[in-house]
Nucleic acid binder design. Structure first.
Length: 759
RNA sequence: GGCCGAGUGGCGGAAUUGGUAUACGCGUUCGACUUAAAAUCGAAUGGGGAAACCCGUACGGGUUCAAGUCCCGUCUCGGCUACCA
């Protein structure tokens, strides 16, 4: 031979072959063990792939190829999460249709992903903004609607009176709209919700059994936040206020009540003297932004003018309104026990209210047991254009009607102006023709059905709804009759490995919620959608900071490839960079180190000789295999480097090279494929035999008082003879020196091949 | 404030889960090859010391024959969360 290692040449050769032969197409084979893996599908931004995507996708790819090489039937699809604000903002700015932007971005992402050599089944691509896909998102919505789990509710939202639009919490800065600077207020609005709280208990109870990182499991538990307590009624001149408390046993110390500013019965509590002041306090509180609440935790509040009777002490206690009580949690009213609660004490001190160190009583005396959750129902309405239309229409009275399933999809109409207008509805409200729809209505009296003209819902769905079921769509991505094909689901699902570095709570909780819901409807034969979750860390810039365009410290993975390193180096480097679940900083010089390693692999092809490397070969097979099982990709690569270093010293046989290429393939598939082809070998994953790993002689560490003093080479068989080891150790001059005063105790650990002499 | 991570050479990181601390890579130094450089190949590389040795896993204690690993306390950094009664 020889040609130099030219990654770009090798990679384009193999990518062309994989494109033509589609070797990674997955086909159900009942009876054959399957493995289904996926990354959290990307939002295809205009910027293309970044190094974080590469880390994420490569982890999935290593596992994909590893299990393929082990003979499993592997499914590894790919998709795009395309609805969302960036494309809409870009559309508003440029007048380009989000549909077109998305198409271009997907094409770019696909092209770039192919340059990384991923073992993807490209026939299963999905795209959430494709009507073929979101038809079924709408179908899912209708199933939830039918069961009463998709519902409308009046609730307080941040509202900008200038822009006439709802704002997310993060879009409110110091009580002002982030766009126009106008003061925002909380406005009661009718919005769509999914009733995730219906599954709160199951979502919480099933967490422990998941093979997910503890970090994520804890975050989900905290998010759901189950509190076991009681509801207690306090009489207020003929009416009552119900409070929620986790400490009903402290009721003897309850010296006042506090209700939230949004408390519905507030009007009843005020008197002629207090009405104006309370109203003003309420208005101010509703104007306060979340950020202000965070920054200023100084207690504020005002006396309503009413008193309640503490059912335990029979005493008359004042009722306050204060914004440290949240309307959305419990009943929106609390009994304040300043002796036992820090917040209540702070409030009591400020307003000069009595603090009573009362005795604790039986928890069940005055309340009824009640469980409350911190998690709220999932607000899914968005007044945005670029999202999945909610399949609902309203009759003349404003009552909602589901769009019949045979009318799906409700196609998002193409419009010219995406900007929200003063109507406070999404830009869809301007699609006049689209708004009108005829819905069959059954007449109660005659039993006959007639078509009635109605007006479509103009809100679109939160993007998280689109990603709540895509893992099941992967099983039958082109199914025209179902959201997912039951037989394909039966074979492939649930997902074996899911890998990502984001969405610890939201997405990963919503998928679990939908899974349980559709399992209850018998659409899914399992109640947890994801068996193993790998949560990868971020890759930061060389300076350790987050990569960002404005800081100019972004590493473009395509540049790394095109600079001549190639995709194999990039992939291998991103796994070698450190433990997959920790953040890591990009180091351009270490990239070179990995490139040198792949070079050494390639050049080893010229160094074939006749030697026996059985032991190191089997050791390496074992190390790489077990490391991949433990997701220790960095040490798996290190083991391959050690192996190659050893082969450089000892010389390598063809067998050694074949094993190297097989083990290398998950990391550097192009180079490994090239090597295997030249060696005339297949890529079947090798196995090791422990008998080769036990060598005849072993090294025994000899310590004196726990400090290393000598190393002995002894026959492996002698490990069973403790006295012989001790005698041997005592022939060592150094050991003799340290043990001259006599030995008090000897500890021999066979497993560790260690002898400790205590003097 | 609460919860969860992390702290090991000049740097990224290893360490069979309590048993030879610093694997592998980067960087540095030296050598080989070369007219030369690059590339490549080989060797050395925690600190102190002439050596024997001593000191070393953020800091202070403890348990143990033995601690990077376990326990108690402290500090620093990162993430999530934020008055949830």
């Amino acid at each position: 031979m020889t040609s130099r290692y030219n990654p770009l040449e090798i990679e384009s050769k193999w990518q062309a072959r994989w494109e033509a032969e589609q070797p990674y197409k997955a086909i159900e084979e009942p009876g054959k063990p399957k493995m289904f893996l996926a990354e959290m599908f990307p939002y295809p931004s205009g910027a293309g792939l970044h190094v974080g995507h590469v880390r994420n996708f490569t982890i999935v790819d290593v596992l994909t190829r590893f299990y393929r090489q082990q003979g499993l039937n592997v499914l590894r699809p790919f998709g795009y999460d395309t609805f969302g604000l960036p494309a809409e903002n870009y559309a508003i700015k440029t007048g380009t249709a989000p549909q077109d932007i998305t198409k271009d971005n997907i094409a770019n992402f696909r092209k770039q992903a192919k340059r990384l050599g991923y073992a993807i089944d490209w026939s299963r691509e999905i795209n959430t903004s494709d009507p073929e896909y979101y038809k079924w998102t709408q179908w899912c919505f209708l199933q939830l609607y039918k069961k009463g789990l998709a519902y409308q509710k009046e609730s307080y939202q941040w509202w900008c009176p200038e822009d006439q639009t709802v704002l997310a919490n993060e879009q409110v800065e110091n009580g002002k709209c982030w766009r126009c600077g106008h003061e925002v207020e909380k406005k009661k609005m009718k919005q769509w919700f999914f009733k995730i709280t219906e599954y709160a208990d199951e979502l919480l109870d099933d967490i422990d059994a998941l093979d997910w990182p503890d970090k994520i499991k804890t975050m989900q538990k905290n998010w759901i936040g189950r509190s076991v307590g009681a509801e207690i009624d306090f009489k207020v001149s003929g009416r009552k206020i119900t409070v929620f408390t986790t400490r009903p046993d402290t009721i003897m110390g309850a010296t006042f009540l506090v209700v939230a500013p949004e408390y519905p019965d507030l009007g009843f509590l005020v008197t002629d003297d207090t009405r104006d002041a309370v109203n003003k306090y309420k208005q101010d509180a509703l104007k306060k932004s979340e950020i202000e609440r965070q920054e200023n935790k100084e207690k504020t509040g005002i006396f309503t003018g009413s008193y309640a009777i503490n059912p335990a002490t029979k005493e008359k206690i004042p009722i306050y309104v204060a914004d440290y009580v949240l309307a959305g949690y419990g009943t929106g009213a609390i009994m304040a026990v300043p002796a036992y609660d820090d917040r209540d004490r702070e409030f009591a001190e400020k307003f000069d209210l009595p603090i009573v160190e009362a005795e604790l009583i039986d928890r069940d005396l005055y309340g009824t047991p009640k469980v409350t959750y911190r998690m709220r129902d999932w607000l899914i309405s968005r007044q945005r254009y670029w999202g999945c239309p909610i399949p609902i229409a309203y009759d003349k009275e404003g009552n909602p009607h589901p769009i019949p399933e045979d009318q799906l999809p409700v196609v998002l109409p193409e419009i010219k102006d995406y900007k929200p207008d003063s109507s406070g509805r999404s830009a869809l409200a301007k699609a006049k023709d689209w708004l009108k729809v005829k819905i069959p209505v059954k007449d109660e009296k005659t039993g006959k059905t007639h078509m009635e003209e109605m007006t479509r819902e103009t809100d679109t769905l939160d993007g998280y709804a689109c990603s709540s079921w895509y893992l099941w769509r992967y099983a039958s991505p082109h199914d025209k009759d179902h959201a997912w094909d039951p037989e394909a689901i039966q074979y492939w699902e649930p997902l074996d490995y899911y890998c990502g570095g984001d969405h610890a709570v939201a997405h990963l909780l919503y998928v679990r919620f939908w899974c349980k819901f559709f399992a209850d409807l018998d659409y899914l034969p399992f109640r947890e959608p994801i068996k193993h979750l790998l949560y990868n860390g971020y890759i930061n810039a060389p300076d350790g900071k987050k990569m960002s365009k404005s800081k100019g410290n972004v590493i473009d993975p395509l540049d790394v490839i095109n600079d001549g390193y190639g995709a194999d180096t990039l992939r291998t480097y991103e796994l070698f960079i450190g433990p997959y679940n920790l953040d890591a900083a990009w180091d351009p010089r270490s990239v070179g180190g990995v490139y040198r390693f792949l070079n050494r692999c390639f050049n080893l092809m010229d160094k074939v000789s006749e030697v026996d490397n059985t032991i190191i070969r089997h050791k390496t097979i074992k190390k790489v295999t077990t490391d991949i099982h433990k997701y220790q990709f960095n040490t798996a690569v290190a083991a391959l480097m050690e192996y190659v270093n050893e082969l450089y010293k000892q010389g390598a046989t063809e067998d050694d090279l074949i094993i190297l290429a097989k083990l290398l393939k998950p990391f550097a598939p192009h180079l490994a494929s090239e090597m295997l082809e030249r060696l005339g070998a297949n890529d079947e994953w090798p196995t090791w035999d422990d008998k080769y790993l036990a060598s005849d002689t072993v090294t025994v560490v000899v310590q004196v008082n726990g400090k290393l003093r000598a190393i002995l080479n002894v026959d492996a068989a002698d490990l069973d003879d403790e006295q012989k080891i001790i005698d041997l150790a005592l022939t060592d001059k150094k050991i003799q020196k340290y043990t001259a005063e006599g030995i008090k105790k000897t500890i021999f650990i066979k497993k560790a091949k260690l002898l400790n002499l205590v003097v």
